[in-house]
Nucleic acid binder design. Structure first.
Lengths: 183, 183
DNA sequence: CCGGAGTGAGACAAAGTTGTCTCATGTGGG
DNA sequence: CCCACATGAGACAACTTTGTCTCACTCCGG
């Protein structure tokens, strides 16, 4: 029967998140298919990683759209965004730490669009007075990626309850990004 | 002349932070030595990675000691700690994402001691009323690691000024960890 | 000046990974 | 029922990386 390529990608992401140097054979076994079939769907390791990147970008952009980051208070938009990104967190953690993606060649333009969307959200929050201005939008974007990765990792290791994922990230990130009330 | 092993480790850390799959030959070239000499100092790739881990643990413990995390307000202790950890951030980022270290075998006990020290600090801050209690010490510890890694990465990529490193991390982390003033 | 220690360069086999191919199976649709 | 198609299993060569070894060179101290 036909193999579900996206299913294969998801199991590959789950495995590579734990062991980034996993063999094509290990990836295939984790997906419950043979190495030959894996190779029929993804020409090689590069193609597999690039497919994972495309999937991650697609999910990120979908989350950005679903969160309607340009509507309402920026803080609420961040909450919606993190909630929307939660299912993709493990995949994002993999891609975020897979620095070899940016090895030499130009990075996928999708990331630039996503970065722009995130940066714009944080900048909007600053301009509306919700967020403090001493933390740059670029840093807040980077920190969001880092916290998503840390959260996914902590959940996978059992150090944080899965249900607390969004709360932990949003509260830590916003607590820092939200301007303090005057004492 | 005798090769400085620690110097080799530092350049290896810098390279592996950018490209975690770098070859022993690449590591040697980055250190300005031959592969043969690299092999004389570190029996193999495993030994090299384990030496990097030991160096990271030693620097972390030194930072924990230097920051005197049990003295004064917990928030100030966190500030001192991040400042003390800044020089080790790139190495920590490498080790944090090098999940293959924990592949199967038991992890180095040093990490347990460091985790305990960090967790105790955050717990102390909670008990003194400085930090909010809805973010668990385990998560704050994880988030600290993640932000250190993100910060090191952002600085390396030029997205954050090196001088802002400590400020960005401390302000974001503490802003979330510090209990809000009553409105 | 000389000897030894440390190094660089390169050769070499062993091991692992990858990409490709073939062949048998079995499964679903016509 | 039967055929086409996707798959699983395995073989195979090519490539990369690794670990080891040898040899020549250099530099420093005695």
């Amino acid at each position: 029967m036909a193999v579900d390529s996206e299913q294969v990608l998801r199991s590959a992401a789950a495995l590579l998140t734990r062991k980034s140097t996993a063999t094509m054979d290990e990836v295939a076994k984790a997906a419950g298919i043979s190495r030959a079939t894996l190779h029929r769907h993804f020409a090689g390791r590069d193609a597999l990683v690039r497919a994972l990147e495309s999937l991650g970008i697609a999910e990120c952009e979908a989350a950005l759209d679903a969160a309607r980051t340009e509507e309402g208070p920026a803080a609420d938009a961040v909450r919606r965004l993190v909630r929307a990104m939660e299912p993709s967190a493990a995949l994002l953690a993999l891609l975020y730490t897979e620095n070899q993606l940016f090895e030499g060649e130009e990075q996928n333009e999708g990331w630039a669009r996503i970065d722009a969307g995130l940066t714009a959200l944080f900048r909007r929050g600053q301009e509306s007075g919700e967020f403090r201005i001493d933390l740059t939008p670029a840093w807040l974007t980077e920190a969001l990626y880092g916290l998503l990765a840390s959260g996914a990792w902590a959940v996978a290791e059992g150090r944080v309850a899965r249900n607390d994922f969004t709360h932990m990230i949003v509260e830590l990130l916003l607590g820092g990004a939200l301007r303090r009330e005057e004492p």
